[in-house]
Computed example of a mutant assay.
Amino acid sequence: MFQRLVMYAVVCVAGFGCGTRPDLQTVDVTFQQDDDDTSRIVVVVELPASAAVEPLSEEQLARLLVLHRLDESDNVGSVPVLGKYHVSGHTLTFRPAFSLVPGESYRAMLDLSVLPNQNIESASADFVIADYSLPAEPAAPAPEIDAIYSSAKVLPANHLKFYLVFSEPMQQADIFRHFTLKDLTTGEFVGRPFRHTQLWSRDELRLTLWFHPGRQKTGLNLNVELGPVLQEGHEYELGIAGEWLSQRGTTLGTQTVKRFRAGPADRTQPDPQAWTLAIPPARSKDPLTVRFTEPLDWALLRSELNVLDAQGTQVAGSVAVGEDEQIWHLTPASSWEPGEYRVAVNGQLEDLAGNAVDRPFEVDLEAAKPRSEGLPGPFIREFTIAAP
């Protein structure tokens, strides 16, 4: 809500009462909400009946009443605020062309010398001055990084990518200057660790940040020339700079970091047959829980794993991933009915090193065959919910 501030100097007009001088009258200059648009502020001047305004031209009105923006030292700016003047009887209204800026201060100056033949005397000067400070809008909350996946504290030395989840969309120009990877074991920053390719989710709230696959895959030129990004046994810190701006122009404010240790390289495919299932009782809404033998890709776990009933219909429900992406829960929308079910695993589901269920990340395309060759559709784990 806007504040109304009324400030006026004692300006006296012959023939009208004014305090101890019965022949003088005051002039008011006020800042008010615009009747036509309450989100806007206007300057209103109330003049005595003897002070005719209507004969004045637009040029004269622009000299009669001027609105300035004040700087931090309360000095008026060199260029007045643009706007339109409206005269109704003895009331002069100035409507700024643009809304006044929240948190800024303004000064309205009424030059009485412009009024023709009004026989006006001033108790102090020819100007009536009114200052106004528009209340600042509440500070918008800073954007946040809600999560960084994988959430595990030990990642394979051939780890491939992170997912950064933001509270709001971020600016996408030149984003890689905001990222650093520091080897805490040596105290040195890792040179050229990231693949400079942006991959955002449709809602622009999730960024996939890749280590350069050419450095993480053995035998490729970058791997040979620069070496792998991570060294087994070393401690690392992924840093995201606090200067990164959201799309509405607010910075993250503070640096966000993820610390982790590089474990042994992982070149083994995930094996659905090695997973364990915790089967819920019939007629309940308890979750089905699948426990993996290693952390898997957080984003792919939300799209490449489903549960089908005996008719092949997908079981509706909510998915949750936990324990450093080693557990997957499906809580059904409706109670489990007794019967046969299948966990359907898309072959593209990957672990943290990019090894998919149907193919390892590092593969000789001429010698190796995908694990799923000859199998119809996704990989299947069957389970039964017994009648109570």
Rank of each mutant, 00 (worst) to 15 (best):
G19T: 06
L205F: 08
V53Q: 06
Q247F: 00
W328V: 02
A142M: 01
P332I: 06
A387V: 05
K285V: 09
V79T: 15
A9S: 09
I41M: 03
P141V: 06
Q269F: 03
R206N: 06
A140Q: 15
D351S: 07
T180L: 08
P193E: 01
Y132P: 06
D286A: 12
Y236P: 07
R95E: 09
T256I: 14
G354Y: 10
D34G: 01
A52M: 10
L92R: 05
K161Q: 15
G339T: 04
E188M: 10
G322E: 11
A282Y: 11
A108G: 05
P376E: 11
V45D: 02
Q33R: 11
Q231G: 12
T218L: 12
Q3H: 14
E72S: 07
L24D: 06
G89K: 08
I175E: 07
A367P: 04
L56G: 08
I380P: 00
L67C: 08
T276Y: 05
R192T: 10
P338K: 02
G17A: 14
P287C: 10
A152H: 10
P138N: 06
R206S: 05
T331G: 03
V45P: 00
E340N: 04
D74M: 07
Q198T: 13
T384P: 00
A356I: 08
I240S: 03
A356M: 14
N223W: 02
P102S: 09
E235C: 13
K84A: 15
G214N: 10
S151Q: 14
V10M: 13
E237T: 12
A262S: 08
A49W: 09
G187F: 12
E54T: 05
Q216R: 12
L300I: 05
F98H: 14
A51R: 00
Y236M: 04
Q60F: 02
P360K: 13
